[in-house]
Amino acid sequence: MAATMALPARASAGSRLRRFLFSQEGILLIAIIVLFVAVGAYNQRFLSANNLSTIFLGNAYIAVAAIGMSMVIVSGNIDVSVGSLIGVLATISGTIAVSGWPLWLAWTLPILAGMAISAVSGWLIAYLRVPSIVVTLGMLSILKGGLISVTAGAWINNLPQGYHLAQLRPLGVPMAVWFMIVLTALAAFWMRYSGFGRSIYAVGGNAEAARLAGIDRARTVFIVFVIHGFFAGIAAVLFATQLSVIQSTVPPNLELTVITASVVGGVSILGGTGTVIGSTLAAILIAAIGSSLVFINVSPYWLRAVQGLLILLTVLADLARRRKRARHR
């Protein structure tokens, strides 16, 4: 796995713009704009404030979860249990809220629980060297089965006043969207400039080189999973607090949507490259595609096929780009 990291070179403003436009982030931004313009021209209701709010408020938590997932994938691992984890944590949050505990506990305990559960997966993967696909596949069924057997699928009603954090609108923008923007910016900055952030890329890009550089692979992977649990926790709270009723089940296919966002966002599935800005843009794009299907009279049942196709195309483009880069050297 002789993957290399793209070194950001010093460049003039013009070539920097060109570089951005051809980067995964640039392509996604253009795709989002084109989609909104095209679908909006076809059916103006797509651009109504109401629909835009549904797209962004309803899917911001996916972008937040994709931040942690991106780190996991950059480190050369994967987590297919994230959907079940978010389902479990959202139920924990709702249960705390209706049992009369202070609201801030309903917002923070799920995050701690997310970190704890993800730490278990991370420990098995990092220190006992069990492949991440196996651990998280097992975790998926443990969390999903556990959730249904404990709650018997009962819905959580009568959520208290003031619980709905995601729906608050400071400066007119839903809180969930603020979370998405701020967390993406912080995580992007941290991954790019902090020592630990760089070490995630190193471990995923070239484990041997990382080891020689004195990076503790196991520790890095373990911490990445704990951080991933942190973001899953926030995502779960945003998910739970945007609903008026919490169904104690796992949102179907959530893990696939989150993974799709990361992969389509340019996080190379081979590890070592990608940014969380890309994954957030991809989450917005996927949400917009999902919403636009309705407005262009295509059955929403095709959404998952579109998602699968998107993953496939992105992975193929990634492989082609790597090959081209390798040939240029």
Binding site: V80, L256, Y301, Q307, G308, L312, V315, L316
Partner: peptide, 29 residues
């Protein structure tokens, strides 16, 4: 795709996990 294009099996079949199920859902409505 796994052999000729070099897509890792995990990713290829994860993509088709979504794609094939999506086709089933789309076709059956």
């Amino acid at each position: 795709f796994i052999t000729r294009v070099g897509v890792p099996p995990l990713i290829m079949t994860l993509a088709t996990l979504a794609l094939y199920r999506g086709l089933a859902e789309g076709i059956s409505q």
